[in-house]
């Protein structure tokens, strides 16, 4: 038992170490600065600039989070503050099933419904697109991270003692004022970390985004440009990675960057949430 436990505990270090050992080759031979900030990606010519991928990842996941903030906040407030308990009974399975649907299914749905919608939406701005772009990626991601964030938010709002609302109400505040001035303020650290966790989830999501985002190596300039996020880079090129020197090392570095970003976000968000639990 203890052995398995220790094994699990050191797993994250193993993950990082394994990926690091594999990517050390490229870190040693190319400047880390070039790797991170250059936008020239020509593996055959030993040019590995990760900027297009990192920026695409930021575009997709930040757009998804920005869309998720109002939807999740509004819905969690409705479910915990206004709706009858039967609404939660109805929504809980919806959230759970949505959270359980595999990434690839979201991808198929994206191809079937979101991509055509993206073409139409871009048309409103007189932009021509194939539909495989950041916008589609963000929409698919949005639906994928909603159940995840919503679950945390519902939990957080339920943790706030009812007496706090009662105190505000008995001072003559309406329910909405109580939510706006008291509950949101009380829940603020929890809300921030919920979206932090959502962002890190979005950052690492692979297959569904890859299927709709276009995968063109370029720095996207608007939301209807195609992009090429980091996870997609890794997933798409595993086939060739042993045929070009240092290519495998570059892909492992991509995985390491991904891991680092996600660990940082996760760590910060979870610390914040733990503090919230302690003080509420």
């Amino acid at each position: 038992m203890l052995a398995s436990l220790i094994l699990i505990i050191i797993l994250p270090f193993f993950l990082a170490a394994g990926l690091y050992l594999k990517s050390i080759l490229i870190i040693n031979e190319n400047h880390l600065q070039d790797l991170l900030f250059s936008d020239i990606w020509k593996p055959a010519e030993n040019k590995f600039g990760f900027a297009p991928f990192i920026i695409s990842s930021l575009w997709v996941s930040l757009s998804a989070i920005i869309l998720a903030v109002p939807v999740c906040l509004l819905s969690s407030i409705y479910i915990t503050q206004y709706a009858k308990s039967s609404v939660l009974k109805l929504m809980q399975p919806v959230i759970d099933i949505l959270a359980g649907i595999p990434s690839v299914i979201f991808g198929v749905w994206g191809v079937l419904m979101i991509v055509p919608f993206s073409v139409k939406a871009a048309g409103w701005f007189n932009i021509h697109t194939t539909g495989y772009n950041i916008f589609s990626g963000a929409l698919v991601l949005l639906v994928m991270i909603i159940p995840f964030i919503l679950n945390i938010l519902i939990e957080i709002f339920r943790m706030i003692p009812e007496e706090l609302s009662e105190a505000s109400l008995s001072l003559g505040a309406t329910k909405w004022e109580t939510i706006k001035y008291i509950l949101l303020r009380k829940a603020f650290p929890g809300i921030v970390s919920a979206f932090g966790l959502g962002l890190s989830r979005a950052f690492g999501e692979t297959i569904a985004v890859l299927m709709v985002v276009g995968n063109v190596i370029q720095i996207p300039h608007n939301i209807f440009d195609p992009g090429y996020p980091l996870p997609a880079l890794i997933a798409n090129n595993y086939g060739e990675m042993l045929s070009i020197p240092k290519y495998d090392s570059a892909l492992m570095l991509a995985a390491l960057i991904l891991l680092a970003v996600i660990l940082i976000f996760n760590f910060a968000s979870r610390l914040l949430i733990m503090r919230f639990e302690k003080y509420s």
Partner: peptide
């Protein structure tokens, strides 16, 4: 809300806003 303002409430434990 007007009626509630006619009454101050003090609960079992203090819940500062």
């Amino acid at each position: 809300t007007k009626i509630r303002q006619k009454m101050g409430l003090l609960s079992q434990r203090p819940y500062p806003l």
